[in-house]
């Protein structure tokens, strides 16, 4: 693979993601003001000292946006990584072991997926105390059902191939079969799936925050910022649209990259060829 084969749309996505991650990493250096610092009047228009204006409490919107990138990206990423690890381990175990284990995991997964993710999250978050790690865990567990589903399908595709049977006949253990025979052949589709889940996590986290169930104030996060500033909309103040646009832009960027990854893998029957 070389850089020239990456299409223009994917470049846009990659650059967008890079900018967001850069902001997240160096937020204190980049932000002109503090995350929770009240610096002026409520809902000042953009321009002057405040590049994007101020929010409903008179905090600098740009600074909060930069800090918000940090929270949003890290929480979404943490949730995605955990959900992926969980979903992959369970799905690969199910696919390789087969029989009762597979049936049990799969039926339980069907049950979890019978309730829409958001509804499930609402029910669970109504009971649990509000902590960041609980939020991440709930997001991860709910999302892992989707990962399980894809992971199992992908692993089964590979697991029925004869080289896996050959490894079994040799007497190889489950761990070898999963990590040495199956995983290397499923990396491409799984990478695309990871991107898809990450985009979904960003949207899901933002939605929860928007509903007041995600990240709690005064910490800045993009979904919460929309909620904070939504009352301004009726007065024609667009402060809520800026973090909303940031969420949309980041999700679009991730999806652009995913789209490219998927197209690349779809021409890869059986995961061969781009070693």
């Amino acid at each position: 693979m070389n850089l020239r084969t990456i299409p223009f749309s994917a470049w846009i996505g990659i650059i967008g993601i890079a900018i967001a991650i850069f902001c997240a990493l160096f937020a204190p250096l980049l932000a002109p003001f503090g995350e929770r610092e009240v610096v002026g009047d409520v809902w000042l228009p953009a321009g002057g000292d405040f590049l994007l204006g101020t929010d409903n409490l008179g905090r600098d919107l740009l600074s909060r946006l930069i800090y918000g990138a940090r929270t949003t990206i890290f929480v979404a990423l943490a949730a995605t990584v955990i959900s992926f690890a969980l979903g992959m381990i369970l799905s690969f175990t199910a696919a390789v072991t087969g029989g009762f284990v597979d049936q049990f995991f799969s039926r339980f997964n069907d049950l979890m997926m019978a309730v829409p993710t958001l509804i499930f999250a609402l029910v669970v978050l109504a009971v649990l105390p509000q902590h960041l790690w609980i939020l991440v865990l709930v997001m991860a567990v709910l999302d892992s059902t989707r990962v399980f589903r894809i992971g199992r399908a992908v692993a089964l595709d590979v697991a029925v191939m004869e080289f896996v049977e050959a490894a079994r006949l040799r007497g190889e253990g489950t761990v070898w079969i999963i990590f040495r025979e199956i995983l290397p052949n499923t990396l491409s589709p799984l990478l695309a799936e990871f991107g898809l889940r990450f985009a979904f996590s960003i949207l899901f986290l933002s939605t929860l925050s928007f509903l007041g169930l995600g990240i709690q104030p005064p910490a800045a996060d993009w979904g919460g910022m929309v909620k904070d500033n939504k009352d301004g909309i009726i007065f024609g103040i667009s402060a809520a649209l800026i973090p909303g646009g940031a969420i949309a832009a980041l999700a679009i960027c991730v999806n652009l990259v995913v789209d490219w990854l998927m197209k690349r893998t779809s021409s890869l029957k059986g995961g061969r060829g781009d070693a």
Binding site: F163, A166, R180, P184, N185
Partner: peptide, 19 residues
């Protein structure tokens, strides 16, 4: 016991790990 019986498949493509 496994070692003493080995197998060769019809489709050599799918019988070997492409990676």
């Amino acid at each position: 016991e496994l070692r003493r019986i080995q197998m060769i498949y019809q489709m050599a493509d799918t019988a070997m790990n492409p990676r």
